[in-house]
Design a protein around this nucleic acid. Structure first.
Lengths: 230, 230
DNA sequence: GTACTCATTTTGTTGCAACAAAAATGTGAA
DNA sequence: TTCACATTTTTGTTGCAACAAAATGAGTAC
C-alpha cells in the first residue's frame, strides 16, 4: 500500500503519542469548563498537571491555539478565550452557515439507521433536563447535533463545526445553569426529526438554524446577566 | 493593561520566533506549489531546508497539519494532501457557504475606500492573464477575493476561508497552466464590483458563488485531464 | 498617591541526544 | 521470480538544560 492511498481525512494527529494524549485531555477539560475564560495557560503548568515534560505540553498548547481553542493574549501568554459579544455573534453567523449546510446535506444522505438513534438521544436530553442535570443535557444536545451532522457524509465540514463548538464550549459550559432553561431546544429537535424522516433538506436546515439562533439568544442573555462576556 | 484586554482575534501565533518563521515559510511554499501533492514531509528534511533545528521544524509541521495544509498518511508520515474529487467537491460546498456569507456581509459593511482598490486588482489580473503569467493571475485573484472578504468585518470567518484556500492551494498552483484559461473569472468579478457599488448583498453573494463554482468546474476538468487528483 | 526604574522571577523557545517505532532494505528459501 | 523474515536505516517523540524575552514586583523619586 502506498502512503498516498491511506491518506486519512481526519485533521487530528494519529493517536498514540504523549503529545496527542495531552492535547485530547486539555481539549476535554476545556469543553467541560474546567478552566474559566481568561485562565492563563503556561507550558510548565500544563506539564505538571498532566505529568509530562514540557515538549508534549507545548505541543498540546500549540495545537489548541491552532484550533482557536486557546488564544494568544500577548507575546508570551495564551489564555482560554473570553468570548466578546461581537465574537459570539460572528461565530453564530458562521455556525448557521456551516451547520445549516450540514443539516441540509444530512437530509439527503442520512440512512434510517442513523435516524433511529436520534429519538433515544432526545429522551436522554429530556431526562437530564427533568433531573436538572444541565451538564448532561448539554452533552447529549451536542450528541444530537453531531449525529445529524455526520449524516452529511462531509467529514471536513464536521471537523470545522467541531472547531466552532470548541471555541464556544468554555464560555457555554460555565453558564449552563442559567443557560439550559426549561425544555431548551426540544421543539426544534422535534421539528428536525420530522424533517429528517421526510428527507426535507430545507426544513431540516430551518430547524437547525432556529435551534442555533435560540441558543444564541439564550446564551447572550445569560452571559449579559452573569457578566461572563464583555 | 490586563492580558484579557489585549486578547487578539488572530489565530496565528505571535510573530518573532523561529518556529513561526518556519511555519510561514512552509505555508508560503505550499501555496506556491513548491511541493507536489503527495510529497512526504519529514522533520529533519524541513529542519535542514530551513536551517533550523528539529524543534521549530516540528512545530511548523504540526501547525500545518492542524490547518489541514498537511495530512497524516500513516503513524509517522505527513504528506502534502492529494485532493480527491470527493474532497474537492466537499471543500467547494463549504467554500460556497462561507465565502457566500462573507460576500453578503461585505456588501453591508464595505466602505468606498475598500471598494476602490478592487478595480486596480482586476486590472492586474487582466494584465497577468494577457501576459500569460498565470501564477500572478492566480495571486491577484486571491487578493481580489480576500479584499472583499475582509470587508465583512468578520475576522474569524476570513481566517477560516484562508484555511480552505490553503488546502486547495498546492493542487491548484500545480495546475495553473491548464487552469487559468482565457479571462477566468473576469465576468464574475465585474458583476461583483457592480453589486458591491449598489450594496446588493444577495447579488454579491451570487457573483462569488458563481465564481467559486466556475473555478471548481475548471479545476476538476484540468485535474482530470492531468490526473492530478484521484 | 503616582509614575517610573530596575532587579528578580516567570515563561516560551531552541537545540540536542537518547529512545522507540515504523519503514526500507537485504537475504535466503521455495 | 516471489514471498517471508530479519536487519538496518529512517524518522517522530520525548525530556531536559541553556537562553532570551517578557511579566512582575519592589523600591524610589516626585
Amino acid at each position: 500500500m502506498t502512503t498516498e492511498q491511506m491518506q486519512g481525512v481526519e485533521s487530528g494527529k494519529q493517536a498514540g503519542g504523549l503529545g496527542d494524549a495531552a492535547y485530547r485531555e486539555m481539549k476535554e477539560r476545556l469543553i467541560r469548563g474546567v478552566y474559566r475564560p481568561g485562565h492563563k495557560m503556561t507550558v510548565r503548568a500544563v506539564a505538571e498537571e498532566l505529568r509530562v515534560s514540557s515538549t508534549p505540553a507545548r505541543d498540546a498548547i500549540n495545537r489548541l491555539a491552532a484550533d482557536a481553542a486557546l488564544v494568544y493574549a500577548g507575546p508570551k501568554t495564551v489564555i482560554v478565550p473570553i468570548l466578546t459579544e461581537v465574537d459570539l455573534k460572528e461565530i453564530t453567523l458562521i455556525r448557521i452557515a456551516l451547520e445549516g449546510l450540514a443539516a441540509e446535506q444530512a437530509a439527503q444522505h442520512g440512512e434510517s439507521q442513523d435516524i433511529d438513534g436520534l429519538g433515544e438521544i432526545q429522551q436522554k436530553i429530556n431526562a437530564a433536563l427533568d433531573g436538572k442535570d444541565y451538564r448532561a443535557a448539554l452533552w447529549h444536545n451536542k450528541e444530537f447535533h453531531f449525529r445529524v451532522y455526520r449524516m452529511s457524509r462531509l467529514p471536513h465540514l464536521v471537523t470545522m463545526i467541531e472547531g466552532l463548538w470548541l471555541r464556544v464550549g468554555p464560555s457555554l459550559y460555565n453558564l449552563y445553569p442559567e443557560f439550559a432553561e426549561e425544555k431548551y431546544g426540544v421543539r426544534n429537535h422535534e421539528m428536525a426529526m420530522e424533517a429528517l424522516c421526510e428527507r426535507d433538506g430545507a426544513a431540516l436546515r430551518a430547524a437547525f438554524e432556529n435551534d442555533i439562533r435560540d441558543g444564541y439568544r439564550r446564551l447572550r442573555r445569560a452571559a449579559r446577566e452573569s457578566g461572563a462576556v464583555e
